[in-house]
Amino acid sequence: MKRQQIYQQVAFGGLRLSTLTIISVLGLIIWFLGKEGVSALSWEFLTQAPRNGMTEGGIFPALVGTLCLTLGAIIFALPLGVFAAIYLTEYAKQGRLVRIIRLGINNLAGVPSVVFGLFGLAMFVEYLNFGPSILAGSLTLGILILPTIIRASEEALLAIPQTFREASLALGASKWHTIYKAVLPPAIPGILTGTILGIGRAAGETAPIIFTAACFYTARLPHSIFDQVMALPFHLYVLATEGTHFEKTLPLQYGTALVLLGLVLGINLIAVIIRTRLRRKIRW
């Protein structure tokens, strides 16, 4: 028994150490980027276009571009995702069709982001002839985040107790009316969580937009959905891998990395907070 206890002490020590390692490494990355990036941040950095061959100035066009692409992706993916989730939870009878649809959603979630990029290039940019544009990039990102939104919406809808539906149906409401009036409203916070997570994902992705939407440099803000835009993640990639001015633009790189990181973590944090509150508060 004594020996067992020593084993346990040693083993738990190892587990603690693993946890500490992972948390501290991830914490270190964020702390380091925060420390180095904060000196580059200023009002000008956020509101001005890059100057002098992108060695000075700010990231405003990239911020606007990322905003456009993310917004476009959500406009496309949110209705589709919610409708798909409604079918899967409210209408579908468990069977082969549902199993196939679910498998499709799971596998879509596993498709590499670079493959989405090539697909967007082949279908939206070339085949549908949108060219590299906000539209093509948004559609590509929208497909990428579709599984996230479907899953979160499904989870939210499944959490609504069966009694809500039964009460509404017992009053003589039709199936659709029941879903629309009794099931969807209480599920909205859950759907929102998934949507916000999707926004965070779309804002941070690089590979899918390189060939579908992003350009190296443009000081001009987009005027239509057929314009090419700068985007934060791609901007960081370009600055960091463009060899000649690497040292000179290092402060800009740290600044861009920090803004991107802050943006994505901030978005995700909102989602996590909503979800935690939801889990605590709601007792049907």
Partner: peptide, 9 residues
């Protein structure tokens, strides 16, 4: 959720 390009950087 940290973007991969940030890890790369």
């Amino acid at each position: 959720g940290v973007p991969s390009v940030v890890y790369g950087f």
